[in-house]
């Protein structure tokens, strides 16, 4: 490992960062021992980086806005309802849908270690994993919301939910006005990732 804290080019090659070396060491040993398949790792990374994103969650929300039976199912058993449209959670993971109303705005945080509903929202944004968000969301949710540009009406209560390894929350934002007659596909385009964490609202029609 380099001892001087930065890499020189005067060797034949270049030094990898200490952290990259640790990852390569782990990966090569786990592959050799047959615990992980390198091709499967690549597929997983690509899937989370490009394919999942928050669009799965947006489809769930749009379906809930347009299909009252599905919305009911989501309220009763979000894990089953979400699985029914093909977004299976990791094993043991229980999904709960939190419906925003004019009276209550829901917001999700994980104070332990950033548990996040990956199958519907992709990978968590950088700020979700940051210590300031994780501590302040609980202590002063309105101030955090204001920093995200969200100001709620006086009468709306903010409820903060702490994710765990077992329970993941998906916020169902309120359907924006002026979208009567829109298809679920059109509506999904208004559902931002932040609106499903509760640090944003669904976009208004342009």
């Amino acid at each position: 490992m380099p001892h001087d804290g930065h890499d020189h080019d005067d060797d034949a090659g270049a030094a990898l960062s200490p952290v990259a070396l640790r990852v390569k060491a782990l990966e090569s040993l786990l592959v050799e021992k047959g615990y992980v398949d390198p091709a499967a790792l690549d597929v997983l990374i690509e899937t989370y980086e490009t394919l999942i994103g928050p669009r799965n969650g947006a489809r769930v929300v749009a379906r809930a806005w347009t299909d009252p039976d599905f919305a009911d199912w989501l309220r009763r058993d979000a894990t089953a309802a979400i699985t029914s449209i093909g977004y299976a959670g990791r094993q043991g993971e229980h999904m709960v849908a939190l419906f925003n109303t004019p009276e209550t705005h829901n917001m999700v945080v994980c104070t332990l270690c950033s548990c996040y509903p990956w199958p519907v929202l992709g990978l968590p944004p950088v700020w979700y994993k940051s210590m300031p968000y994780r501590s302040r969301a609980v202590m002063e949710p309105r101030a955090v919301l204001a920093e995200f540009g969200v100001t709620l009406p006086e009468g709306t209560a903010v409820r903060v939910w702490d994710s765990t390894a077992e329970v993941r929350y998906l916020v169902i934002p309120q359907r924006p006005g002026g979208t009567e007659g829109w298809s679920a596909e059109q509506l999904a385009g208004l559902v931002t990732r932040d609106s499903m964490i509760g640090t944003g609202l669904a976009s208004s029609p342009a």
Binding site: V23, V36, L41, Y48
Partner: peptide, 8 residues
């Protein structure tokens, strides 16, 4: 890579 290893 580290993320994917933990998941797998």
């Amino acid at each position: 890579q580290a993320f994917a290893m933990a998941v797998k």
